[in-house]
């Protein structure tokens, strides 16, 4: 499955990754070669094989739905780029 310039720009947008045209051209080439290597998988017959998402056959444990964490907002916001009154600051979203 050949990769087009538009595929890379689409993926970049979906991933919210800024990419200028020069970078995109380079990635079309790199990603094309990676996908070419990946395409080897198509040669294998996997009809009827269940996908494996996780290497161990275990079930997820459940726990009681109880509050176990204390409020550490100030501590966690210390590493934020911009906060005010306990809120994260971002550019205006709604005019």
């Amino acid at each position: 499955m050949a990769l087009e310039h538009a595929d890379v720009q689409r993926a970049a947008h979906l991933a919210r990754l800024g990419l200028n045209d020069e970078d995109a051209a380079r990635y079309v080439d790199d990603l094309g070669r990676i996908l070419e290597m990946v395409d080897m998988l198509q040669a294998l017959d996997t009809e009827g094989i269940a996908p494996l998402a996780h290497p161990l056959d275990v079930t997820q444990r459940l726990r009681a739905d109880e509050v176990t964490e204390s409020d550490q907002r100030e501590r966690f916001q210390r590493c934020a780029p911009a906060v005010e009154d306990g809120l994260y600051l971002v550019p205006r979203v709604v005019e």
Partner: peptide
């Protein structure tokens, strides 16, 4: 960036079965 782009592309609509599902089947093998 390369890996984010590859991952986003292979998970995106129209490519998921051919790549991600296939790779997970191969993972079982």
């Amino acid at each position: 960036k390369r890996r984010i782009l590859i991952g986003t592309h292979t998970l995106s609509e129209g490519f998921f079965d051919a790549y991600y599902k296939k790779a997970q089947q191969v993972r079982r093998l």
